[in-house]
Design a protein around this nucleic acid. Sequence first.
DNA 1: CTGAAAGCGCTTACAG
DNA 2: CTGAAAGCGCTTACAG
Lengths: 394, 394
Amino acid sequence: MRLCIYTYKCYNTFANLSIVLSGFQRPTDKDTGMKITQRNIAERCGVTTATVSMALRRDARISPVTTERVWAAAQELGYSPAQNQAARRMVMQRFGRKIINRVIALFLPPQFHRLAYYARIYQGIMDVVTEEQFALLITLFHEEMDATFRMPQVFNSGEVDGTIVYMGHHQPVLNDLHDNPGFRERPVCSLVLPLTGCSTVTFDDFHGQYAAVKHLLDLGHRNFLYLSFPRTRDRMEVFGPRLAGIHQALQEYHVPVLHCRVCETPMEWINPHRYSANEEQERRLLEVLQAHREITAILAHNDAMAHRVWVLLTQAGYRVPEDISLVGFDDTDPLPNASGVNQLTSVRLPLEDMGRASARHIIRQVLNGTNEVEHEVLPAELAIRRTTATACIP
Amino acid sequence: MRLCIYTYKCYNTFANLSIVLSGFQRPTDKDTGMKITQRNIAERCGVTTATVSMALRRDARISPVTTERVWAAAQELGYSPAQNQAARRMVMQRFGRKIINRVIALFLPPQFHRLAYYARIYQGIMDVVTEEQFALLITLFHEEMDATFRMPQVFNSGEVDGTIVYMGHHQPVLNDLHDNPGFRERPVCSLVLPLTGCSTVTFDDFHGQYAAVKHLLDLGHRNFLYLSFPRTRDRMEVFGPRLAGIHQALQEYHVPVLHCRVCETPMEWINPHRYSANEEQERRLLEVLQAHREITAILAHNDAMAHRVWVLLTQAGYRVPEDISLVGFDDTDPLPNASGVNQLTSVRLPLEDMGRASARHIIRQVLNGTNEVEHEVLPAELAIRRTTATACIP
DNA sequence: CTGAAAGCGCTTACAG
DNA sequence: CTGAAAGCGCTTACAG
């Protein structure tokens, strides 16, 4: 034991030497010896590591004088607590406590950086994460990857403090996280499409869509075409509130719900990166408009879809908004005029705020050592521009 | 000691029970007891943890029979080695060895996901990282952040295996990484703009630019305008090879170098997200063209700039390519015609390949436990489209 | 207010 | 081929 202590002293001298003599060759296989531990501090101060450990955390049980001496020695020796995190992690788990790694993970779909919608949420998350000096671990996940997906190793080793699940709408991911012994009990927050059993940050789709329809009703429109996407049970969570918002507005204006035709469009219409011309679908949309000349306004599921519809309408000789009004949803995909000014009336989603809210929530839980499920709903407001106008009743 | 072993046995029985009786309440403050360790396996097999440790790694010193028994027990108990990574990390550092975390970090500028250029490199990195079951840690960094920047805590704790520095061109980042005791000696790879003292993956700017000029010379052009950006010492590394490529081509065709005018444009011209109309600069560009009617071809520093120039030329009444040919660089920013087909002749950079190459390099080093500096140069090829044509000599 | 001891879970020499 | 022991660096009861 005594010998051992001498060994340490020897290393210390070594370390000092190699700082002074900058050309000095470090013993390459003994780089571990360069690492400063609480033991080095203890020796220099003539106390035990227990005292150092508590002093460094400014525990009240250690006298102020000793605490300062320990801190000074730590500074001098260049002690970095993060460096020996592994030991701390191990002893903490002995007492059933967790350490804070300042790492949060983000699950998101592979193509996230290609779509403004995802990119803006990502931006908000990253802003907060950087500000709070956390690191962000990106994990790509897509429903189709389900079979091959394996939770990255870091989740197992307890090195991730919390997770944000960015869309996905895929409950198994959450279960995997909760079943993972290295991650279990840590906070999770799902975005946009809520998962059950964790915190959520969502938009107020209902009031957003409600505001859009109310705006059209105020302009005299009474017959609508709502372009949705193929409904599956999964997606009803998105579809439901939107439709309810529409119904609510119609009801307030005593317009029968039948006056809103719901049209399912191909999924690719809402994702411009998957878009491939689908002539049959495009023809069908125009046929509906021809057959129902009473329709004077179109509500699209998102801006990308509104964009596509605008092109079709223009090619077919319709004028927007003179002949027909058009409203988007999400406000990510501008429809610029010649001077580059966005023309599309749309429901504006505070996407960056959503990212920020989720990151703040997770970081708060991590720093407090809590895991309280919270549900935050962010407002969706109508941005009125130039694709909506007074109804042109035939 | 004996008591301790009994405690463990007790926990095990508990664990089995709670699997059978799914409604059974787990002791919440004893969740650590649920964790399976090599000790549990050792007890079940009647061997020591040393044997288990070696058997799990299929060390030849352990008999096949014992190895299989250990593996079977591990399976049964649901042992997960990653879970106790902290202990492994600690013992490994005792013997001066590293463990593989399957985590690599990526340093990149804050707005990376907004620019196709960055996004495509990112895509390539992510593809390989996901395929190799690594996790990616994103760290935003920008020269302007230098004062406030602090290396995230995870780098200190030895939980990051290697780093890719994505642009930045900022040597201090590399020094910070190398000075960090938790990261020291691990592989680093810088992209596009090489840092000294680490591996690099770059493009063959020289041959890319050379091919572009040769193409124009073949079309009969003899007087060029090369639109560059403000030259600082930092940026000479980009500027140098490009200019050398131009000179080489001119020389081969015996065209005096003076026939290539170099014009500096504002930095914002190469970054569409920072673009704001700069009428004076725009007028100056047109003035140059008016004053030098012998110029029949423009080489832009990147596609974004080419885009901007195309708009200016068109507005000023020039026809591209009939009156003037235009060549971009990077091939990220298409100039679509009415049918959506890109018209811009440009030097195509294999951006995804670059991301993939850097990720492969780092992952190879990590898995081999080596840190060999390598320099990879990827080809840049000319993509000939419709903004270049036979010179219209006045 | 501080020290001596135990132990988190693992891997590696070193015995046998 | 396997076991007993040591120790990575830390924190926490428990003494004094």
